[in-house]
């Protein structure tokens, strides 16, 4: 499975090994981790909602596109769903290729496309007890009126 969604912790070591190849001189890994802050707010934990039927299909397409665009040998992407704590790995992209340029470019392409095309949503839970969906335009523009706009 080149693209998958997991509701359990990502095995980073196993993901790296899955793309290791004696014909490849480069192995590039991107790991996205849960950090403790976002846009001035102290984050306590985070929740990913994934619509798997479309995410898995579209995710596989992104990997296929990376193979078509770059001279890579192996590529995979695993994305988490559910409740994640600070320091958890939310997403991993592993790419191997004969030379480093293609692996770097393909890894960047896969994570960038994953962030913008897949039906995956992130709800941040703050230490204040408030929680909100990331990328919600109403949150971004509400300013001082933000308290009137809740995501429970």
């Amino acid at each position: 499975m080149k693209f998958s969604v997991s509701d359990t912790a990502i095995d980073v070591s196993a993901a790296r090994k899955a793309v290791a190849d004696k014909h490849c001189g480069a192995l590039v890994v991107f790991e996205g981790w849960i950090r403790d802050h976002n846009e001035g707010q102290q984050v306590e934990r985070l929740e990913y909602e994934v619509y798997r039927p479309v995410a898995e299909k579209e995710g596989a397409r992104i990997i296929d596109e990376a193979f078509a665009r770059f001279a890579i040998t192996h590529a995979l992407c695993i994305h988490r769903e559910g409740l994640l704590e600070l320091g958890d790995c939310a997403v991993i992209v592993c790419v191997s290729s004969a030379h480093r340029g293609a692996a770097f470019d393909a890894c960047r392409y896969i994570i960038d496309q994953t962030k913008t095309r897949l039906p995956i949503w992130k709800k941040e839970h703050y230490v204040t007890g408030i929680s909100e969906w990331v990328n919600c335009e109403q949150c971004a523009t509400a300013g001082d009126a933000h308290g009137e706009h809740r995501h429970d």
């Binding site: 997403v91 994570i111 994953t114 095309r117 992130k122 969906w133 990331v134 990328n135 919600c136 335009e137």
Partner: peptide, 10 residues
């Protein structure tokens, strides 16, 4: 028909 609000994977 599935309506997806702005996505935020990664």
């Amino acid at each position: 028909v599935l309506f997806f609000p702005p996505v935020a994977g990664g």
